[in-house]
């Protein structure tokens, strides 16, 4: 069982995963994961297809257990609170830990309402309204953050489904950011996109990492090396190695990591 390496000391971990196990029916998909995810910056989860990256990511906002026949055991500490504790409010957790899915799922609403959705859910729009057209300003702000504002500012009332896939994914990013999550989970966020849109998303995420903790799952080693500050390498449901990106990419300790990075396996 691998133990997380101590992080660069100046940042305390944002998430601390402790002996996390996941079963799909009888398939033991994650085995005793220990890891720490630093505050701010980008943490990349890498590994070959089917090694449990998505499973690990979705266990961090407990979206995982919405599926059938899934069992989770272990702890994930978010700011000294175990999110698997019984008193944890799932809706609050998911507000604080947002998710960007591999494929964009625009809600069946207008572009504007997609971004405003989370704020309305949490009643933030009432506060926003108190200050004149504040919700409008918030929507604009997050659309700008996602790099979509210029393209949609003239058609905010249009249905979101009318956007291109790349635009939809940025809209989903804006929607996720609009509830001001402290952690953003991204599951292969560029896998459905053309290279230009993919680059756009990467750039937005890199800007965001200044004040948001970003966890990104990717099977693209080059994407990981471009973006990541910290890397977690999974292999067949086990955490093999994790550490600062530079170190891990330059001097992988485990032979499996070496083999994977050199393209010999996975």
């Amino acid at each position: 069982m691998s133990q997380a390496l101590p992080l660069n000391t100046h940042s305390s971990p944002h998430l601390r995963i402790q002996d996390l196990n996941v079963w799909y029916e009888t398939n033991h998909a994650l085995r005793g994961i220990y890891a720490e995810i630093p505050t701010f910056g980008i943490t990349a989860i890498i590994g070959p297809s089917g090694c449990g990256k998505t499973t690990l990511l979705r266990s961090l906002n407990r979206l995982l257990e919405e599926g059938e026949g899934i069992r989770v055991k272990g702890q994930v500490w978010l700011n000294e609170v175990d999110i698997y504790d019984r008193v944890m409010d799932l809706n609050e957790l998911r507000t604080r830990v947002g998710l960007l899915a591999p494929k964009p799922y625009p809600l069946p609403l207008s572009i504007y309402e997609n971004v405003a959705y989370g704020r309305r859910i949490h009643g933030l729009d009432v506060l926003d309204k108190g200050n004149g057209r504040n919700l409008d300003r918030k929507v604009e702000h997050y659309l700008r953050t996602a790099g979509l504002w210029e393209e949609v500012k003239d058609r905010l009332k249009a249905p979101a489904s009318a956007l291109s896939t790349g635009q939809q994914q940025r809209l989903c990013l804006a929607r996720a950011l609009a509830v001001e999550p402290e952690i953003l989970l991204c599951d292969e966020p560029t896998s459905a996109l053309d290279p230009i849109s993919a680059q756009g998303i990467e750039e937005q995420l890199i800007t965001l990492k200044e004040n948001t903790t970003i966890v990104i799952v990717t099977h693209l080693l080059r994407q990981a090396s471009r973006m990541a500050d910290y890397v977690i390498f999974l292999w067949m449901g086990e955490l093999v190695e994790c550490g600062p990106a530079k170190e891990l990419f330059k001097n992988p300790k485990d032979s499996r990591t070496q083999a994977y990075l050199m393209g010999k396996i996975g």
């Binding site: 906002n61 919405e66 809706n91 998911r94 899915a101 494929k103 799922y105 959705y117 929607r175 509830v179």
Partner: peptide, 11 residues
């Protein structure tokens, strides 16, 4: 995915 998108903003 649509449901998950909504759950993920805390709905």
């Amino acid at each position: 995915g649509l449901r998950e998108a909504s759950w993920s903003v805390g709905a």
